[in-house]
Design a binder for these strands. Structure first.
Lengths: 195, 195
DNA sequence: ATAATGTTGGACTGTACAGTCTAGTCCATT
DNA sequence: AATGGACTAGACTGTACAGTCCAACATTAT
């Protein structure tokens, strides 16, 4: 090979992410090639079909979803607040919004991709969160209850109304994220404090 | 006119709803005509362009979102449980799921349609719910707090994880809806009972 | 140098589809 | 009976795009 092939491959994947998340699957190969600054044929040198490129791109961008849950179950209020802030930062960002919208739109056409993304993204996060709840419940820093349900409830409170607005393309109303996250975690703690 | 034109118009809109929600906007006019049992030209007799048909269809189907909130603020647990059950029934049904997915997918292309649907659907429901919270708080059957936030929190707990699964096309895990709704409302009541 | 390999740009094929046009049919009103 | 508006079937135009082909070019390894 002459000009470094791996560079081109990565540039194409990056361009595909850009194009697919903003224009959906209908975005054309020619457009992607143009965004990558590469000839159309070069795209086909690296990926046999548009579908293959799409699948590769989704595989390459899955890490976009991971939000770490670091912190001790001894102090759930603090740990969950930190987690909630990071969640808002990452998951409700413009980039991630476009990504989720695109996944949702193409889920019927690419069910495997959607299921894989769900497993790596939301499902993994829920598992992590449920595990945290279980440990906190064992420590009696949260009331004894179904840890999975607790995880889903917190997840729901955090994403719920915001996620809906984001899906409909409604601009975020202006308010303090920090304040909102704290109010939500406070609500969660009222419901789940050990008595 | 000979064969009743209004019938055809309604059949076309119905077919468009079916086609657009299952295949997205990419579904063809020919396909819609076929579903409606009508000639392609007849579609164009009623709607000038594909976009116009789409807009009309979304206007016609907006009522799909309305979930009534009937019941007294004197007994929030019961009223909210009934509301939650109806919400699950309606909003998380296959038909409504496909609808939401389609809206989300086409929101960038039809921002007006998306905003309108948001106003009539989720926003109206949140308003209704917030009003209920306000009245219950005035009655001291719920703790004094921000009623809008309370509404969004309950809405989030109800739709959160389920909505995500639905967007990703993940089959509902089998559990009792009623049990889940009751657990969620119970959690909400723990957080919002007046002390 | 030369062979091998990747890239380029442009021409090309085939398909799918929006939207138009036409010739003919069916029915209700006059 | 005649007029006119809606319907049908199908041909047709133009465009967009996936995917292929090819001839010329650049770079690196031998």
């Amino acid at each position: 090979m002459s000009p470094p092939s791996q560079d081109n491959r990565q540039r194409i994947i990056e361009a595909a992410r850009e194009a697919f998340t903003t224009e959906g699957y209908r975005s054309s190969i020619e457009r992607i090639a143009q965004l990558a600054g590469v000839a159309k044929q070069t795209v086909y040198n690296h990926f046999p079909t548009k579908e293959a490129l799409f699948e590769e791109m989704t595989r390459d961008n899955m890490n976009i979803f991971s939000v770490p849950l670091a912190g001790s179950p001894a102090n759930p209020r603090q740990t969950l607040t930190e987690f909630g802030l990071m969640y808002y930062e990452c998951i409700l960002s413009g980039q991630c919004s476009a990504w989720i919208r695109m996944i949702a739109a193409e889920a019927p056409r690419f069910p495997d991709m959607a299921a894989r993304t769900y497993r790596v993204g939301p499902a993994a996060m829920l598992d992590q969160l449920a595990d945290f709840m279980r440990r906190a419940m064992a420590l009696k820093t949260l009331r004894e209850d179904d840890p999975r349900l607790a995880a889903e409830i917190l997840y729901g409170m955090l994403s719920g109304a915001e996620r809906t607005r984001m899906l409909f393309g409604i601009e975020r109303e202006s308010y303090e994220q920090k304040q909102r996250v704290e109010a939500i975690v406070d609500c969660f703690m009222r419901a789940y404090q050990s008595q």
